[in-house]
């Protein structure tokens, strides 16, 4: 089984984000693999451990994206490819999806392409569906469990707000994975050594065989949300019932409920 897992480099989730001159800044916080993508790598590796085969990590980004790729390699992916093209700076989701789909085709396709649920930087979460559409494959998103997988079909459980949904699809398929799937493994020490030595092929957009896609969505402005003004008030009373009654009145008065 051939699986491609798409990974992205994002600012550490602990980074303090700010907006400076209309641009997002995360200071000197480190860039890390998108946390959701770790679940995607875990799912891809478990699939090949059960079915045999290889997992290829694919990323679109600049030099910094190599950190995410090396992390995926250290977790156990067998090879990796980086699409690194300065012209893609500021690309929107559909442009990213077009390049990823073209890269997947250039790799020679796959039985399964796996994504994390979304990237924590832009939080759009549409890339998996767009890539599936461009490839003409089914998209099974928000996968929390792979119930069964054969060489031709996959049955998966989707995590939805209202409950779980079981779906089946023929391969090839695009999956996006959620946290419920299970804890991603740590990189192994042997994997770290292999990853540190790995040379990652770099392609430009032209190498994937398509013209540079143009963005259809731009970010004319980015602003930080206004800071919330928080005030503390201690409700006093002679007994818990009185305090609770006053609190309930206050909640109603402030129209919290």
């Amino acid at each position: 089984m051939k699986i491609i897992v798409c990974v992205k480099q994002v600012p550490d989730s602990a980074a303090a984000m700010s907006v400076e001159d209309g641009k997002i800044s995360w200071g000197d916080a480190p860039l890390v693999i998108n946390p959701w993508d770790e679940y995607a790598v875990e799912a891809a590796l478990r699939l090949t451990e059960a079915q045999g085969g290889d997992v290829i990590a694919l990323s679109l980004g600049d030099e910094n994206a190599k950190e995410a790729i090396k992390h995926a390699l250290a977790m156990g992916c067998s090879e990796a490819i980086l699409v690194n093209d300065p012209a893609m700076a500021g690309a929107d989701t559909q442009a990213v999806a077009r390049v990823l789909a073209a890269a997947i085709q250039k790799i020679g396709g796959a039985d399964i392409v796996v994504f994390g649920k979304q990237a924590i930087d832009s939080d759009v979460g549409a890339t998996p569906s767009m890539v599936a559409r461009l490839l003409g494959w089914p998209a099974v998103t928000l996968v929390s469990e792979i119930v069964e997988c054969t060489q031709s079909e996959i049955k998966a459980s989707r995590a939805m707000e209202e409950g779980r949904q079981q779906v089946a699809a023929e391969l090839p398929v695009v999956l996006s994975i959620v946290k419920d799937y299970g804890e991603p493994r740590y990189p192994s020490f042997m994997g770290i050594r292999k990853a540190a030595r790995a040379s990652v092929p770099e392609w430009t957009v032209a190498d994937t065989g398509i013209d540079l896609p143009s963005a259809v969505v731009t970010w004319p402005n980015v602003m930080a949300p206004p800071e919330r003004e928080v005030t503390n008030e201690i409700i006093e009373g002679s007994n818990p019932e009185e305090i609770a009654a006053k609190l309930a009145d206050k909640i109603m008065e402030e129209k919290v409920l």
């Binding site: 770290i192 050594r193 540190a196």
Partner: peptide, 18 residues
Amino acid sequence: LTEEHRMVQKMVRDFTHK
């Protein structure tokens, strides 16, 4: 530090934090 050093550091850090 080498890339290997940094990756091992991160792996052990992730382990202890989790």
